[in-house]
């Protein structure tokens, strides 16, 4: 897919809770085709301490209004700067990067998101729904304050929630959710995104099931286009770039999973 460098204008900013920011961005050019699971490398403006672009998942795309949205966890100086942007500020994006999610043959699909790993799942649910799939969606988080936009996900599928403190939905870690009960688990395809520990736990949980697990990885990277080779993950066929050959991988391909 052809990649672009475009300027976007911030048209809406929302700070849900204390450590996330949701940005709605209007593209200065017509948006190119973007697949769910793809990401953008964002140039952080006016922050001399941030040198490299920041890879951020595309949270959703609205082709009619020529906008995209980003859901960003504030973890360091770069993402903090993104949370300080104001409406009408300009942001430079290199995108769309990576391979994204492939649509499956089956319609027994479960999307699993943990923490800020939900970022690409809204767009995935949205895209699946546009192609007449009916995914179920499970979102796990530390507490109710970190779960946002539930109404958006509900547009595209059944939403299940779990929090570590039980303040919303069931109580426990994602893998403790009743959806994973062995005798009732019906999904052929699981798309998961979140911290690596969570992804590995989900994959372990489903070993021995007749289920394919696809995970979206978040390795640190520099270029985002397969040149620097910083972001490699060990696979059964050697080191592969998360930026160009991922970020979505079938866990069967990942060495040591």
């Amino acid at each position: 897919m052809k990649k672009f460098i475009h300027d976007f204008k911030v048209i809406k900013k929302w700070l849900p809770g204390s450590n996330h920011v949701i940005l709605h961005l209007l593209c200065s050019e017509p948006l190119p085709p973007i697949k769910a699971g793809q990401f953008a490398e964002i140039l952080i403006p006016d922050e001399p301490e941030v040198f490299l672009r920041r890879p951020i998942s595309i949270h959703d795309v609205d082709t009619k209004n020529n906008t995209i949205s980003l859901f960003v966890k504030i973890v360091g100086k770069g993402t903090y700067k993104l949370s300080e942007l104001r409406v009408d500020d300009t942001l430079n994006l290199l995108y769309p990067l990576g391979q994204g999610f492939e649509f499956p043959e089956h319609d027994k699909i479960l999307l699993v998101g943990g923490g800020c790993g939900v970022a690409p799942l809204l767009f995935l649910a949205h895209s699946l729904s546009q192609h007449n799939y009916h995914p179920d969606i499970l979102i796990g988080s530390r507490n109710a304050d970190e779960i946002h936009e539930t109404g958006e996900y509900e547009k595209y599928g059944n939403l299940y929630l779990i929090t570590e403190d039980g303040s919303l939905g069931e109580k426990g870690l994602v893998t403790h959710h009743s959806i994973f009960k062995t005798d009732e688990f019906k999904y052929k395809i699981v798309y998961a995104c979140g911290p690596e520990g969570m992804l590995k736990a989900v994959n372990q949980k489903l070993k021995g099931f007749d289920t394919e697990v696809f995970v979206s990885l978040e390795n640190t990277m520099a270029c985002g286009i397969g040149a620097c080779l910083s972001c490699v993950v060990k696979t059964t066929t050697g080191n592969r770039c998360v930026c160009t050959e991922g970020p979505v991988f079938n866990t069967k391909e990942l060495a040591g999973w």
């Binding site: 001399p48 301490e49 040198f51 620097c228 910083s230 972001c231 490699v232 993950v233």
Partner: peptide
């Protein structure tokens, strides 16, 4: 991995 680190005005690889 990891084989890259951002530094002030540069990076290590």
């Amino acid at each position: 991995y990891p084989r890259m680190a951002e530094t002030p005005h540069g990076m290590l690889n």
